[in-house]
Design a protein around this nucleic acid. Structure first.
Length: 276
DNA sequence: GCGGGTGTTCACGC
DNA sequence: CGCGTGAACACCCG
């Protein structure tokens, strides 16, 4: 799925192109894409509601509506949101189409059908278990070295990579960026979080911000399915230093060769030379 | 046919 | 309770 930088890229695109418009209709071809939401309720909720803002929490897009409702969209592994013309063909994997008051359409495509759309009252969003259980946004003031230290001391037997993937610790990091962040911070993904030094925690904190910032600036990583709102690929893959680079020399030119292991069931790439 | 893939969740065993 | 593993979801690709 798209991780924070990809979802943020889509959010920025949506903010530019649909805020201020009204939603006019919704067509649902695959009802199981709706989570805790009835198709007729969704149609009623969004009909003629104005989109007042597009927010993001972790990897989830939040369409804020003037009617007091929020539409949550999770793209999971292969979901895409596409801003389309009315005459554009409907793809095989388009499962939901939102109509917009300017005549354009928002297609939700998802080859693997893991993603979901959920409607809830904006005032109840704080009670939503997915949203409420999420750790701080990396770019918020809550994300500090002290916070990492506090959360990491409780995880004595875990591996740092697994903890970075835990959305309740930090919101938005996935398999690509966990590896890129750990490489930038020179920390081996198998390390135990509770024994990291103050310097390592600070390096991890800074690397998180730097890698995510650079990825957003390059409009995310497209190695397979991810595209932005207009269907274009992101440009960050060419900046990847470890992810999917098994057997290649470390970009730090330190004589290390990128290794691939499994952590938390996920392929994990790192340089044994510079990541300690 | 098999394994693996940007995510998440659950069952199970230690 | 914490943590790791494997499976599940569904589909494409090499």
């Amino acid at each position: 799925m798209p991780e924070l930088p990809e979802v943020e890229t889509v959010r920025l695109d949506l903010q530019r192109s649909i805020v201020g418009l009204k939603l006019t209709s919704v067509e649902i071809f695959l009802p199981k894409m709706l989570k805790d939401t009835q198709a007729e309720d969704l149609a009623h909720i969004l009909k003629d509601a104005k989109i007042t803002a597009v927010d993001r929490r972790g990897k989830i897009i939040l369409l804020r509506l003037s009617s007091g409702y929020t539409i949550m969209i999770h793209l999971k592994m292969s979901g895409q949101l596409l801003y389309m013309d009315a005459e554009d063909p409907i793809g095989k994997w388009t499962h939901i189409i939102f109509g917009l008051s300017n005549g354009h359409l928002l297609h939700l495509r998802d080859q693997r059908q893991f993603g979901y759309v959920k409607a809830l009252k904006t005032e109840d969003a704080g009670n939503d278990t997915t949203l409420a259980g999420m750790g701080p946004e990396p770019f918020s003031t809550d994300f500090t070295v002290a916070y990492l230290k506090d959360r990491f001391t409780r995880r004595k037997k875990a591996k740092i990579k697994a903890v970075l993937l835990d959305q309740s610790v930090i919101a938005g990091i996935g398999n690509i960026y966990a590896d890129e962040i750990l490489h930038e911070a020179r920390i081996k993904p198998t390390r135990s979080p509770d024994v990291l030094t103050r310097q390592e925690l600070a390096a991890l904190h800074d690397a998180t911000l730097e890698i995510l910032r650079a990825a957003i600036e390059n409009r995310g990583s497209s190695f397979s399915k991810y595209v932005d709102l207009s269907g274009k690929q992101g440009g960050y893959v060419k900046h990847h230093r470890v992810y999917r680079r098994e057997g290649e020399p470390c970009f730090r030119d330190d004589g290390g060769t990128i290794k691939r292991i499994k952590i938390a069931g996920r392929s994990t790439f790192y340089c044994p030379k510079c990541q300690k």
